[in-house]
Amino acid sequence: MIDVLLKVFADSARAAIGVQAAAYALAAIGLNVHFGFTGLINFGHIAFLAVGAYTTAIVVDLGFSLWLAIPAGLLGAVILGMLLGIPTLRLRADYLAITTIAVGEIIRVMVRSSAMEGLTGGVFGLQGFADEFFDVNPFSRGNYGVWDITFNERSMWVMTVGWALVVLTALLVHALMRAPFGRVLKAIREDEDAARALGKNVFAFKIRSLCLGGAIGALAGILLAFEAQAVVPDRYLPQTTFFIWTAMILGGTGSIKGPIAGAIIFWFVVASTEGLLRAGITHGWIPDWLLSSQEVAAVRFMLVGAILMALMVWRPQGLFGKREEVLIGAR
């Protein structure tokens, strides 16, 4: 029994520091720029991940170097930020929320359509574009880590890059938010008319916020695509956006370390819950008529939903946010 629990713990710890968690942390940092600092309700964040990953994969597919493709992916996200911003930033918050989801879905449906198959690979997506990235892997073959928490050289390389990016972007966002630039974003978050009345070009600042957060989201998308060496359209469903939202709110919106801590805790909780349930089922502690192993995946979504609800009701500032500064839940 103890063995089983330790194993579940080890697996959960692996998930909490793994590539998924790093990518979620990046995505949540980007989303936090949008929502936590600027107050933009972006429910289509997944589109930035998709555009970053797809642009990178397509540019490699067209025969260019990966090291050219990555900036292209970021540029793609910046362009999406502008395209998304121009029609939507004049909208009321609730309209904006719906429109951003819609834009995310438009992109997913377009990318998976057979008309685009020549470019995007349609429903099958694109594979094997990150070889150049793994060619420069400094980790030699083998497993790294302590105790049961180990990773192979491939995961180690993606994780190292991922967490390095997390730290770098967090520092970048920290610097920006302490500067007068961040002051304007926060003012827009609270009352954009007040910022306008003081001579701030609110629209321009919102576009910059969308592009910046979007580019960080694109990094997350590229990281996940490298890990899988694949981009597949149905990995970019709207519910992933809500997972990222949950991680962000869990950590605390409008704080620098919030999204990072949120992503780590999010994956630990999800992985340990699933691990415990699966262990319970295989060892017969949970009777099969109650829950079968196939249904454990469904529990993940229910758990995320429940966490999201509970946070919004009881702790909208998350674990590290300041109650006084939280946009939602305190109005």
Partner: peptide
């Protein structure tokens, strides 16, 4: 008095929970 945005996010969580109850 959690506000409209909080209620909207809560409805997202609720939708996730209920939808996957349906799946089961």
């Amino acid at each position: 008095r959690s506000g409209d945005i909080a209620a909207m996010v809560i409805s997202i969580g609720l939708a996730l929970v209920v939808r996957y109850v349906y799946l089961i």
